[in-house]
């Protein structure tokens, strides 16, 4: 798979390590009411869709940036990639 890195252009997916669903960017507030249940859900539960999936990849063998890659889990087709920083600053991965 080739990941279209927003700064470096197409890069081999082998240069990256995979973390999982980009919803991990939306960390719950540990001080809020019901934080324990919110964290159990955040840490352990996943949508795990068959189809378009937004996910976190770390460019470990490259510029060490975190990307949000949009990819189809039924075909492995990569539909886009953004810097995770930009996604987070825009308000999360929803």
């Amino acid at each position: 798979m080739l990941i279209p890195h927003p700064l470096l252009g197409p890069r081999d997916a082998q240069e990256f390590t995979y973390l999982g669903d980009a919803a991990l960017l939306n960390r719950p507030d540990g001080m809020a009411e019901g934080a324990e249940a919110a964290f159990a859900e955040y840490v352990y539960l996943r949508d795990n869709p068959a189809g378009v999936h937004r996910e976190l990849w770390f460019h470990e063998q490259g510029d060490r940036s975190w990307l949000v890659v949009t990819r189809d889990t039924t075909t492995h087709e990569i539909l886009g990639a953004e810097l995770a920083r930009d996604v987070k600053l825009k308000g999360g991965a929803a």
Binding site: G20, D21, E41, Y44, L45, R46, D47, N48, P49, A50, T73
Partner: peptide, 16 residues
């Protein structure tokens, strides 16, 4: 499992 149980409104601690 995640696809089938989603039809019962559940999210699972599973990735495929």
């Amino acid at each position: 499992s995640s696809r089938v149980m989603a039809m019962a409104g559940m999210r699972l601690p599973i990735e495929s």
